[in-house]
Design a protein around this nucleic acid. Structure first.
Lengths: 220, 220
DNA sequence: ACAAAAGTGTTGTTACTACACCCATGG
DNA sequence: CCATGGGTGTAGTAACAACACTTTTGT
């Protein structure tokens, strides 16, 4: 017989959004030892009858008020010493929020919460650095072979905004004409008819994704 | 404070190999209710100081005697009712074995163990049907953008054997000349110098992968 | 000699890259 | 009238798909 287990199950959520043109993640400040002063992804233990995905959605709602966004299981992290207080395995999720929709909840569970640029993160508690790297890699590859970008943009967006999402996450510049040709040829988006107004420049055509759910297709 | 958790952590391993030209998986027979008569992937609870990956490797060794093969975390399955006897979350792994190396251990933990064609599985216990589908999809996509095939073949193999691995897993036929050109152009394999002998046909050049570890690259 | 799998090139088509100028608007 | 981002086409190159016959061996 196997020995009795004394293991707790947690979830941690890497919540991405584009802030000021930079790929950013939501972090909370730790105010207790052993990680006092460091940052961590929002998370918590799951309850007895809750799935990890439900728990991740609950946490997302608590912190940001947002509910209908892309959320997917990332991986499970389970090094025995990852939490010095006892054996805790963490099922990590990642979520993508449209920048417009995010107003951090006044009633957020943690007060010390904020956005940090994904390519320049502060010191992270637990094994959250490893979780961060895994999440960014996954996001990058998913962007190349799916339409996930819908989840990082408001319903209507311009092609330049879409291109900036790609450039920000992939970390390289893309050719405007080639990008537009490729994206339009994929048939994932439709012109909304409306035009963006207010800019000190020619108004841009607005587009929206035909489907606001995951579709796999070679994008770049 | 969150309520006390009473959750156990298990691993399940989807062990793939090519048997008689078919993609196959290792299954054990359940001899106790509630899943008596059904099949399941080998698995078990982890011990207190063991990672899930260590546990998966331990199980693999116990059942097949094989140790140095491709093994990767697949996903975590945690529906509250997936195990009727209590809350158990399972971290699933998948492994790829070269067909030659497999001789099921006499001392296998389960006696009723055998290979089943992946595209035509019997009734599976727990949520193992879902695990199977996830694993096959993952394997298919991984094959297209990495060199994982090394793990399904012996050290030296012919190009036709390699092509058959791709055809078996992807479920479609590939053009011989195009396949060979593409694979050789990638520079992942080298000719071994030796030739296959014994066939009632022209002897084939043997090749081997330069690196027997995961390398990402667009294959097809 | 025959069966069985190994091995090998070309052509047409499609997708990709690189690149520069004019347009519509607000101030 | 100026600054700002929006919007558009082409040419050269590289990758891809489709396709059939000759070679070497064992029996």
């Amino acid at each position: 017989m196997e020995k009795m287990q004394n293991i707790r199950v947690a979830v941690d959520s890497v919540i991405f959004s584009i802030k000021d043109g930079e790929l950013s993640v939501l972090l909370i400040g730790m105010n207790k030892d052993p990680f006092k002063g460091q940052k961590a992804f929002p998370g918590g233990f799951i309850s007895q009858n809750e799935t990890t995905e439900d728990a991740a959605r609950r946490i997302l709602k608590e912190e940001t008020g947002v509910s209908d966004v892309f959320l997917e299981q990332l991986a499970t992290f389970d090094a025995p010493k990852r939490d010095p207080r006892g054996r805790v395995i963490s099922v990590a999720y990642y979520a993508l929020l449209p920048s417009s929709e995010v107003k951090l909840k006044a009633a957020a569970k943690y007060s010390d919460i904020g956005w940090y640029v994904a390519s320049d993160l502060p010191k992270l508690a637990y094994d959250h650095k490893q979780i961060a790297e895994t999440a960014i890699n996954r996001l990058r590859s998913k962007l190349e072979y799916s339409n996930v970008a819908w989840s990082l943009l408001p319903r209507d967006f311009t092609l330049t905004e879409l291109q900036k999402v790609y450039e920000t996450i992939l970390g390289r510049d893309l050719d405007k004409r080639n990008f537009r040709r490729k994206i339009l040829a994929l048939g994932l988006i439709n012109a909304s008819g409306e035009k963006q107004k207010g800019g000190v420049h020619r108004p841009a055509q607005l587009y929206h994704f035909k489907q606001r759910k995951l579709v796999y297709t070679d994008v770049l």
